[in-house]
C-alpha cells in the first residue's frame, strides 16, 4: 500500500491533501458530536464569529481543518475561540459547534501546562 500513494497524479507534498490517510481524529469527533457531519460549509459561523474579525478563523475552518487533517492550523484556530456561541445560533444545520470545540480541544490536548 505504501507505494500506492505515489501512484497516479503528482501533487507536490506541501500542497497535497492526502485523503487516503485515515483521519482518526475526525472519526472520533463525529462519534462524539454527530451533528458535525451535517455541516455544509455555509460560513455563517465564521461570519458572525467574535474572533474571525481579527484572526480570520471561525468554526467552518476549524471543521475543515479537522476534516482535511490540517491539524497545525486547527490547533492554532482553536485557541482563538471566545466560546460566545454565536456560531451555534446562526448555524442553519444545527451543528453543535461549542461542544465540537471543547471536544477538539480535548482531543488535541490544547491545555496550558
Amino acid at each position: 500500500m505504501i507505494g500506492m500513494t505515489d501512484f497516479g497524479f503528482k501533487i507536490h507534498k506541501d500542497q497535497l491533501l492526502d485523503q487516503d490517510r485515515p483521519n482518526v481524529a475526525y472519526k472520533e469527533m463525529i462519534e462524539k458530536v454527530p451533528s458535525l457531519s451535517l455541516c455544509i460549509s455555509c460560513g455563517s459561523c465564521t461570519a458572525t464569529c467574535n474572533s474571525s474579525e481579527m484572526t480570520g478563523m471561525g468554526f467552518r475552518k476549524l471543521h475543515l481543518y479537522l476534516k482535511t487533517g490540517l491539524y497545525v492550523n486547527l490547533k492554532r484556530g482553536l485557541k482563538y475561540c471566545q466560546y460566545c456561541g454565536k456560531c451555534w445560533l446562526v448555524c442553519p444545520r444545527g451543528v453543535n459547534t461549542r461542544k465540537a470545540i471543547v471536544e477538539m480541544k480535548r482531543i488535541f490536548e490544547i491545555y496550558k501546562t
Binding site: S41, C42, G43, C45, A47, G58, R60
Partner: peptide, 23 residues
Amino acid sequence: IRGRLSETNEDVDGSLVIRYEDT
C-alpha cells in the same frame, strides 16, 4: 458569492453593512 449572511447593520447614511464569509 458563496456565503450566507450572518449580521446586518445600518450605517449613519442609511446604507446597509452586511457580514458574511466568502467561503
